[in-house]
Amino acid sequence: MTRRLLFLLPLASLALMAGFLAWSLMAGRDPAAIGSVMVGRPAPRLDLRALRDGDKPLTDALLRSGKPVIVNFFASWCTPCLAEHPLFTRLAQRDGAVIVGIAWKNKPEEARAWLAKLGDPYLYAGLDFDGKTGLDWGLSGVPETYLIDGTGIVRYHFRGPVTEKDVTDVIIPFLKAKQ
């Protein structure tokens, strides 16, 4: 009998493997997703010069003000950033969200021109010219967006452009819950 079971072993292994592969396909798992280790941890260090002339430098204090903060990395050369930009403008104007914008690997004059053209939703805007801050934040490219609660803990990390669905399902409830 055990001998017979032995002959069933290959079939069982196949079933197991095929099950996983089918699961992966059905669940629409994105093989390129890299996850984030930032969620649930205190926001990384922030120490940047301001993007706009005359503004004060950006520091950690911004992230521990007791109010939820949205941190958005962008660049003027980044096409998907164009797509999500109106959503941030609306979040700032309609919902009064505190949004920190960080221009990543961007010449400051180009980033400023970009904001002048498209509108500037950022209460604070910083410049991460050499990408060092991005690295500390576990950034993989732009755009990426972090939601940070009043105590300075990262609660969400969006890789890629934020969508309308993200705004209604995640960002708005997040802003409301913590106020």
Binding site: P10, L14, A15, A18
Partner: peptide, 10 residues
Amino acid sequence: VTGGGLALYA
């Protein structure tokens, strides 16, 4: 293909 083959095998 594989399952059929392995079932016949078993």
